[in-house]
Design a protein around this nucleic acid. Sequence first.
DNA 1: GATGCGCAGATTGTATACGATCCTGTGTCC
DNA 2: GGACACAGGATCGTATACAATCTGCGCATC
Lengths: 240, 240
Amino acid sequence: MNELGIPTAHAAGRESGRATRAREVADSLTRAIHEHRLGPGMKLSEDEVGEIFGVSRTIVRAALQQLAHDQLVTIEPHRGAFVAQPSVREAREVFEARALLEPRTARSAAERATPEDIAILRRHITQEHAALHAGQDGAALRLSGLFHIEIARIADQATIAEFIGQLVSRSSLVIALYWRRRNALCESHAHDALLKALADRDGALAEDLMKGHLLDLLSSLDLREAPGQRRSLKEALGRA
Amino acid sequence: MNELGIPTAHAAGRESGRATRAREVADSLTRAIHEHRLGPGMKLSEDEVGEIFGVSRTIVRAALQQLAHDQLVTIEPHRGAFVAQPSVREAREVFEARALLEPRTARSAAERATPEDIAILRRHITQEHAALHAGQDGAALRLSGLFHIEIARIADQATIAEFIGQLVSRSSLVIALYWRRRNALCESHAHDALLKALADRDGALAEDLMKGHLLDLLSSLDLREAPGQRRSLKEALGRA
DNA sequence: GATGCGCAGATTGTATACGATCCTGTGTCC
DNA sequence: GGACACAGGATCGTATACAATCTGCGCATC
């Protein structure tokens, strides 16, 4: 079992006697998707997931419904849950939404960032670089997303931060499907520059950098008509 | 039974042989919240809701978890689900998020609106006025929210539209808690002006009007320290 | 040989059962 | 008379059981 490459949840389960284990399962699955261990289109059978995490289908169902709400998985009635495969259109929309939310949020963050905040961000970037050099592409991608979410948190806008979190998650799927270039280094440098602007409390610069960063990201995608490159013909037609 | 004023779901249940009835229950509850038939702080017992809709607790739980994800209800472990009571801070955040999303979306909508779209919006406004004159405050409020959501739909940005939908829902709770003036007429006039800008395809004006409309809404709230005016003393103290 | 039908296996949808936790009211002790 | 302890009831958290639905394979038919 555990062919999905998901860490058996024993360790995570110990972290707290929290009432709902559904959240734990959902978080593990979310993380697996962020790190591209679970790719778009993969089936998430309730029994299988339940066996891996040692919980009953009740819990798994709740977790999957959460992920479905975040649009990370698609639930097809009587067929099951699948890791979502954002269409080209959805991909664009995600980045358009991010372009609407994140630049202004970065400005707010720059105006409010404390030295501790900066230190946390710096640590994020360091870890991201380390993961990248270690060849752990998935981990680097997840950390890269966390950087954006952390900025939203610093801006002290929990509601917007939550939206950005959802968008970052979906971006991870978009990247899995439509990523073109293989070198993710441009990202890291963008984050370096953003960190500097935040440390300097330069809100206007941070806003501009974020806007540019998102445009870079978008332009590094291949959003032509291919709804999925390695998707099977059957699914492609069933979805077209 | 049915002391919650919720339409017994028999009719709604017939509408389609859809697989998940959880969605129906969630929609009914959402609508009840929008229309202020369910007020902030009300308890939503699983058994009670299940009995009203004629479904088991399994379904009710799924529905409540959905609403919790939309932050319309708060689930307190081992205590139950309650209609959310947004704090003053959350109230501000909701409107700040709307201020970030809706003006630009209104501009897009103005640039894309077809005559049919305009007709739909006009019908919305008409219904809103009718409900208002009939003294159906709740229905008017819900229609007012639908107006905003419809604009997002016209802008052809499903992702942003969903976010706006969530924010409008939460706004309904905010209004229930913090509304000051009794005359909601200003709203309607704002919508009239917006409709005209959209019909004229004047994107810049629509953006400005939307921004002003949201500011008006915000300023019509009483966001001082009062976490809730007509809350029962017990809950008020238990929450303070 | 290709196509349509039907049954078996597997998977999901929903309900119910049982254990755990929390609230409430009563009784006792200080 | 007031505060604490405890028991009863109610409600939630999770697992399991059963029913509905879908998928895939084999067979009959054209």
